[in-house]
Nucleic acid binder design. Structure first.
Lengths: 252, 252
DNA sequence: AACCCAGGTTGACATGCATCAAGGGTAAAT
DNA sequence: ATTTACCCTTGATGCATGTCAACCTGGGTT
């Protein structure tokens, strides 16, 4: 016992069964034994730093990645430095799902702040999923959830105006942080205004102006990346007001 | 032999193994025996007609649906009759994937023209997928493909202008019809201008004007729902010109 | 045949947001 | 401490596209 492995502390710290994210992540609904089996195929690396890539567009697909701490953005780079930000990923969220089909990454994933990432080799994962029904089910659900989330984004980009988009973004951040045990009304954004604008299909200037306006209206208090939500209810109302009176866009 | 079942003709006509879509659909890459197992859980109903619903938003999720012939649109209805069209589905395409996560349908699915639909009860399907690795893999791929497609739509809605959107829509239709053995340059659209506009985040009038403009420029010949593509190459160029010179929107 | 009506087209006008431009604050680098 | 470079903010202007309104057209109904 005195001779136990030096890595034991490390192991305890990161093992799936001890991970606070297990209810949000793949282990969701699995028996302790099965979680151990999953755990045995997960690779963990040293923390990554701002700007590091998990993978780049075009690379062969080998593994899914799960954010353990920190945050990651995914984006599709296009010629000339332009890009479309596809999403911001918080702890427990899985990255690389879109690569399964083509066996290659169509987007790139870049770390926004110092982050710990779990790597899940996909081939092994599939074998495991075939023998653990609840894991297969979790995976179907996670993929489905992503599709549902994308549908929300389509609605946002297709029907909502700038104000509604930023409000929806704030509500989403608030809810997701809250689920992770953080404050739903006081948080730091790890992405730039530019990245937010890109994600929401808006110009940086518009995002900036909206933050200012929301602040003037007493809805939030913003200081650079630090956001305090003062009136979450009003922001939720704005965010949900897609087809409400006054916004008759494409109303059939 | 004389006494064979009356439904035999019907059965032959629709069985997965005799279906021309099998390479686009779930049976992709499965052994003939496994296709039979899949076939045994698939339900087929009488043809549905324009306006019929496969399911409606809010209903309990029980089955996935696959278009066999015809076409279907999915959309999220919102209060006041407004809606966001999420997609148009051609033969071989699977509908209902976004409902797996919540165990309830978040969108509605409406038939655009007389269509034959296969119903796949999901619980049975999951059992089958766990015992047929290639089926599980197909399903992961199909879900992943949907996510990748959604990402393309996010780029379209977030970065492309009206002209690029409609061009992308035409290219998509052309490619998908072509894969199904139909002409890539001469086809009938089963959806209205309104539905196209809603899908692309544009007003009906804009869609109409663009069709006219494309026709004036000699790119297409349009007569109501009938579209002939005269210069597919140019349309592809327009569709792909997201970040090209001249369109500097959000160019970082 | 006359009517009806949803779907489509076209024109005139309005506006939300992108674009252009300039300046200020902050954090990392030296 | 100073420099540097990025990020953010704010103002002025223009344009693409939504909105409003009118009319056309073809298919179905009485």
């Amino acid at each position: 016992m005195t001779q136990r492995k030096v890595i034991s502390f490390e192991t305890i710290r990161v093992a799936c069964k001890n991970c606070t994210l297990s209810q949000l992540c793949l282990p969701m609904g699995m028996s302790p034994e099965d979680v151990d089996r999953l755990d045995s195929i997960v690779k963990r690396s040293r923390p990554l730093h701002r700007g590091d890539h998990l993978f780049r567009s075009g690379e062969r697909f080998r593994s899914l990645y799960v954010v353990k701490t920190g945050s990651v953005k995914t984006y599709t780079p296009s010629e000339e430095g332009g890009e479309q930000v596809l999403g911001f990923h918080l702890p427990g969220e899985i990255i690389g799902l879109d690569a399964i089909d083509q066996d290659a990454h169509a987007c790139s994933a870049k770390v926004l702040e110092t982050s710990a990432i779990c790597e899940v080799p996909f081939q092994r994962f599939e074998e495991l999923a075939a023998s653990i029904p609840s894991l297969q089910h979790s995976m179907f659900r996670l993929l489905s959830k992503e599709i549902g989330h994308d549908a929300e984004m389509l609605l946002l980009l297709g029907k909502k105006n700038a104000e509604e988009r930023l409000a929806a973004f704030l509500v989403s951040m608030s809810q997701r942080l809250s689920k992770r045990g953080l404050s739903p009304t006081d948080f730091y954004l790890s992405m730039s205004r530019h990245e937010i604008g890109n994600y929401l299909g808006l110009a940086v200037e518009t995002v900036s102006r909206l933050f200012t306006r929301f602040q003037d209206e007493g809805l939030v208090k913003v200081d650079r990346k630090h956001v305090e939500i003062l009136d979450l209810h009003s922001i939720e109302t704005i965010a949900g007001a897609a087809q409400a009176a006054g916004s008759r866009k494409h109303s059939n």
